[in-house]
């Protein structure tokens, strides 16, 4: 009965390919542009390692944010969570806690922040925008209080090496950690019941409810995942700064959200991929790096990045309008 007319099928497959690879194509063109303009300085192994290093923190945050945004939520407290966790790691190290335990404790603290968000969202029935807007201020304040408003620099440990550029030009270990975690989350979104529930809740919460999806529990879990990845981003940021700083990463959440959106996720939920979000983060790093290589001042970079965000969403909408 189900006739499969080949033409629309091929057409929809082409669209599928375009939407999956759209961000990748964008990344390719950005690289090609800067390679053409500044081959010598841009196209070097060292420069690529630097760009990857600069992407790691936003990338780690973007993995968690992808899960949150696909489920139809938002988390504006990522920057504040990162600041709080860097301070916590620094304090733990000062207390002679082993670096591994300090890092895991930091990630766990991120998860607790997510648990708080998820609980407030589900139990109080507030929108995630408001809850995380509030937490953005509250967690930033907590970080400052915990650190007595001063950066904390504990003795150097191997943790600081996570974001160090290596002599052979290979990317820092932190980049590999981010990539490995991205693979785990991408597989989780695609192959687990939890992952399919994330898409179902984001696509149509009422349908998910009708189908018996435990919405409250899954939402809390979703924000915990988001918080855990803010914790991972904080570990990398700590390594990069070699210390804990309560004033670090102000506005980081907006870069993270931008990466996810450039990567093809829809802010209304139900759509998005981890790979796309990472590519979105890379596009922003490449543009920033390339503009620097071209000798453009900082303010030009900011205007260009802003334009890319709007253009990416516009392209996505035009594509979707063509479909319906």
């Amino acid at each position: 009965m189900a006739s499969a007319p080949s033409a629309p099928s091929a057409q929809s497959r082409l669209r599928h390919v375009l939407s999956a690879f759209g961000p990748a194509i964008g990344l390719f063109f950005a690289c090609a542009l800067f390679a053409g303009l500044r081959w010598q300085t841009f196209m070097s192994v060292d420069n690529f390692a630097i760009m990857l290093q600069q992407t790691a923190v936003i990338g780690a945050g973007a993995i968690g944010m992808t899960v949150v945004i696909v489920a139809g939520g938002i988390d504006l407290a990522v920057g504040s969570t990162v600041a709080l966790v860097t301070v916590a790691i620094a304090l733990l190290l000062k207390e002679q806690v082993s670096p591994l335990l300090a890092a895991l404790g930091g990630v766990g603290l991120g998860g607790v922040c997510g648990l708080l968000t998820g609980t407030l969202v589900t139990r109080l029935g507030l929108t995630p925008f408001i809850v995380t807007l509030g937490l953005m201020g509250a967690l930033r304040g907590a970080a400052k209080g915990l650190a007595s408003e001063q950066p904390i620099y504990p003795d150097e440990t191997w943790l600081n090496g996570l974001m160090k550029l290596r002599d052979n030009g290979a990317p820092p270990i932190g980049v590999w950690i981010t990539l490995a975690l991205a693979v785990v989350v991408a597989l989780m979104l695609r192959y687990t019941r939890f992952g399919r529930h994330v898409f179902a809740i984001g696509s149509n919460e009422q349908t998910a409810r009708l189908c018996g999806v435990p919405i409250e529990r899954q939402k809390i879990l979703i924000y915990v995942v988001g918080g855990l990845f803010a914790g991972v981003a904080a570990v990398l940021q700590f390594a990069y700064l070699t210390g804990g700083d309560p004033t670090t990463s102000v506005g980081l959440e907006l870069n993270v959200i931008a990466a996810v959106v450039i990567g093809g996720a829809s802010l209304s939920g139900g759509q998005g991929t981890v790979l796309g979000s990472l590519i979105g983060a890379l596009i922003m790093s490449v543009v920033a790096n390339g503009c620097t290589k071209l000798g453009m001042p900082n303010w030009v970079q900011e205007i260009v990045t802003g334009g890319i965000i709007v253009a990416a969403v516009l392209l996505d909408q035009l594509r979707r309008r063509g479909r319906s």
Partner: peptide, 30 residues
Amino acid sequence: SEDRKTEGLALDLSIADNLTLTRLPSWVRP
């Protein structure tokens, strides 16, 4: 549901996703 567009079905998910949503195993094989 009487309202298949806003409640009955998630319009942007696939037929397969909509159809199996109530009975997903822990590990989903697409």
